[in-house]
């Protein structure tokens, strides 16, 4: 799927073997995997540059590409996790490039279970647009579980947005308070925790609904 990688494949933009001719004649082997896991679709929304792809990469591969950062990440990444003793496949979708094309993103929202709104805590603008994203884009908010992720918490000194009273009003309007966190894709602060928490909240919510 796009650049879809399962967790064992690490995306390497510069991998030399990619330049060799691929074997197009390769026939598809239909081996059935018996594992029937629960699938959770998570989409990452937010301004460009807030670190959506990095968060995804940090969570799935525990990597932060400071050296050469690929311009685009994978379209989605999957990770198998255990949430409350339930095997879950997290499928995390990156929406990079669609920030300016509102109608294009709509296809994502249908069928997603959870929507992580990512903002950069050093950029007030990214925080504001998260609010408008939520309001403007999602037509049926009750199909979603919303969480808020404030990224780049490693850059403490220029923090603009992190005033709890400013964050609160947003949380009031349908964002899952308990799983909204401040994270850092760079050093991994709270990233795993945030995604696990998000998965748990979504699952609980689904259980409640069903």
């Amino acid at each position: 799927m796009g650049c879809g990688n399962s967790q064992e494949e690490v995306p390497k933009a510069s991998a030399p073997n990619l330049l060799e001719k691929a074997d197009y004649s390769e026939s598809y082997i239909r081996n059935k995997s018996v594992i029937n896991r629960k699938l959770l679709k998570v989409i990452l929304l937010g301004d460009s540059g807030v670190g959506k792809s990095s968060l995804m990469n940090q969570y799935v591969h525990q990597q932060f590409a400071a050296e050469y950062k690929a311009t685009i990440g994978a379209d989605f990444l999957t990770k198998h996790v255990m949430i409350d003793n339930v095997p879950v496949t997290m499928q995390i979708w990156d929406t990079a490039g669609q920030e300016r094309f509102q109608s294009l993103g709509v296809a994502f929202y249908r069928g997603a279970d959870c929507c992580a709104l990512v903002f950069d805590i050093n950029s007030e603008k990214s925080f504001d647009s998260v609010t408008s994203w939520k309001e403007a884009q999602i037509q049926n908010p009750h199909d979603f579980c919303f969480v808020l992720l404030g990224n780049k918490v490693d850059i403490e000194n220029q923090r603009q947005v992190l005033k709890i009273q400013r964050v609160n009003p947003l949380m009031m309007s349908g964002v899952q308070k308990e799983s909204s966190q401040l994270v850092s894709a760079k050093n991994g602060t709270c990233v795993v925790d945030a995604f696990d928490c998000l998965a748990a909240t979504t699952l609980n919510r689904d259980d409640l609904v069903s």
């Binding site: 796009g2 399962s6 598809y28 685009i72 989605f76 490039g97 294009l104």
Partner: peptide, 25 residues
């Protein structure tokens, strides 16, 4: 099927859109 990597038909079908928006980046 393992080739589908947990993706469904819908996920495959939005791929060209995804790809298109990645070109400008």
């Amino acid at each position: 099927l393992s080739q589908c990597k947990n993706a469904e038909l819908q996920d495959f079908l939005i791929c060209p859109m995804q790809r298109l928006t990645r070109y400008p980046l």
